[in-house]
Write a protein that binds this DNA or RNA. Structure first.
Length: 479
RNA sequence: CGGGGUGUAGCGCAGUUGGCAGCGCACCGCGUUUGGGACGCGGGGGCCGGCGGUUCAAGUCCGCCCACCCCGACCA
């Protein structure tokens, strides 16, 4: 239960975030360092995220499956970049059944290797392709610094792993998924994102191309909110994933993988949250509207509650995720604050005056205080509420988009870039050299986020070295 | 791994020259309250992070260890 005020976002953003996660009962610290317990409210939110994505994946031919948590250590050594990228953060099982294992087992940090191994068994012919499998589960990465949802030792996600006959098909798959991720962020999470390609230094270990969607948090830092990778034949060669083509020639498969993790919940918190707490987009909110009955005594209660019950039934029948807060031990005022902390998009207050006037009071979470309150008729309440939820969903996206756009700058020179990334993003021409990228990082701590797919065209001069550049990139400090 | 900090009731903390372990919130009971975080009265709850040492006596002094949090180098 929310028992205290949060620090404001300006006072202490990190502390605002931590306390919000705990007080909104999204998650709690687990007894193991860096691990979290996702509480029922947080998991309900996650389920709304996963079920939407699951539907989208299935709609374009993907199927779900499950692979083991434990992976032979030797699998990780088969792809050079992959093992180099992941070995620092592997958790390794050395004992089982009271005895030392002959070969250590890795708790999966991602499943390319074991899935590659299985694909090699399953794929013989061009007729077996493509394989489009998604695994829902959790993975473990030994992180040095953790933060609830944003970076935890164990986190939840889906990982899509696909194998194709040709490069074109694999590339198409990578971009198809990136589009789904973008659609999810815009339409469900109300988070504007930028689709783009990662630089070589920011690429996934073992990938030929890594694409990402990048979002701006309230503190103007960037959060990579989803990734989609093209591996070319890297993993196929490491794991012997080969097929016979129509001409009876043995070919290596082209593979991809892609993921959105429970980190996206951190993005929802940081993009929409305010000093009162969480603000959830209606399409993902576990509770879209909460009803708070108001009465002084038994007489008023017996007048109010039948109306509450009737309206609740109507709203529920209309498919709205609605809850009645009928707790007796706390005051309405407390409930207002409590549900605001939890980010419920719409509050419906019903008291004696409303019973008399056939009205209810609606309070929008995204517009705090009096301005967000309106008094509407009880007639056709489901339609009114549905309309309001749609309005709120759109308002959140519009607000987040305006905020992001206002904080992306096009610095004139390197000096200005250094200032800009202190409190925003820079969108600049870049020669794509590691040296210039490293210089920016060393000088400012900002990294390249991605090279957007959507380019202005033409060419310019690298913001760092002044050499010819053909593409623009986003520089920002990132989570 | 480096720097900083904290470990005492579920949470937040106080605890003096070493001398019966406390306060606020939360929790339980009863009553009054209820349109923006109500109040009164009465309760329950402790291996004081762990181990060792000093002492008649340790939450307090000394040593070692452990854990967690915050700030830096890697990552979705």
């Amino acid at each position: 239960m929310a028992d205290e005020k949060l620090p404001t976002q300006k006072e202490n953003y990190a502390e605002w975030y931590n306390q919000l996660v705990l007080k909104a009962e999204l998650a709690d610290y687990a007894p193991v360092r860096g691990c979290m317990v996702v509480r029922p409210y947080g998991w309900a939110l996650w389920e709304n995220i996963t079920s939407w994505l699951d539907n989208e994946f299935k709609a374009c031919g993907h199927v779900n499956a499950a692979f083991p948590t434990l992976i032979p250590m030797s699998f990780f050594e088969k792809e050079k970049e992959h093992v180099e990228g992941f070995s620092p953060e592997l958790a390794v099982v050395t004992h089982g059944g009271g005895e030392k294992l002959e070969e250590p087992l890795v708790v999966r940090p991602t499943s390319e290797t074991i899935i590659g191994h299985m694909y090699a068994k399953w794929i013989k012919s061009w007729r077996d392709l493509p394989i489009l499998i998604v695994q829902w589960g959790s993975v473990l990465r030994w992180e040095m610094r953790t933060k609830l949802f944003l970076r935890t030792t164990e986190f939840y996600w889906h990982e899509g792993h696909t194998a194709h006959a040709t490069k074109d098909e694999a590339m198409e798959e990578m971009y198809r998924i990136l589009d789904i991720y973008e659609k999810f962020c815009l339409e469900e999470a109300a988070i504007p994102v930028i689709k783009g390609t990662k630089s070589d230094t920011e690429r996934f270990a073992g990938a030929q191309i890594t694409t990402s969607i990048e979002a701006m948090m309230w503190d103007k830092r960037a959060l990579q909110s989803g990734t989609s990778h093209y591996f070319g034949p890297n993993f196929s060669k490491a794991f012997d994933i080969q097929y016979l083509d129509q001409g009876n020639t043995l070919q290596y498969c082209e593979t991809t993988s892609w993921a959105i993790s429970s980190r996206i919940i951190g993005a929802l918190i940081m993009v929409h949250g305010d000093d009162q707490g969480l603000v959830l987009p209606p399409r993902l909110a576990p509770i879209q509207a909460v009803m708070v009955p108001i009465y002084r005594d038994a007489d008023q209660k017996s007048a109010v509650m039948p109306v509450v019950d009737r309206l609740f039934a109507e709203l529920k029948a209309a498919g709205i995720r609605v809850k009645v807060d009928d707790r007796e031990e706390v005051t309405p005022g407390f409930k207002f604050n409590d549900w605001e902390m939890r980010g419920v998009p719409l509050r419906i207050e019903i008291g004696p005056k409303d019973v008399e006037k056939n009205s209810v009071a609606l309070a929008r979470r995204d517009i705090p205080g009096r301005e967000g309150k309106s008094f509407v008729s009880q007639d056709n309440l489901p339609a009114t509420v549905t309309g309001m939820l749609t309005t709120i969903q759109a308002a959140l996206l519009a607000k987040a988009t305006a905020f992001r756009d206002a904080n992306i700058h096009d610095p004139k020179d390197y000096e200005e870039l250094k200032q800009v990334v202190e409190d925003g993003w820079a969108y600049s021409w870049w020669c794509e050299s590691k040296e210039c990228e490293a210089k920016v990082k060393a000088d400012t701590k900002a990294t390249t986020r991605n090279i957007p797919l959507n380019q202005p065209g033409g060419e310019g001069r690298c913001i760092v070295c002044g050499e010819k550049a053909t593409r623009k990139v986003y520089f920002a400090k990132a989570y």
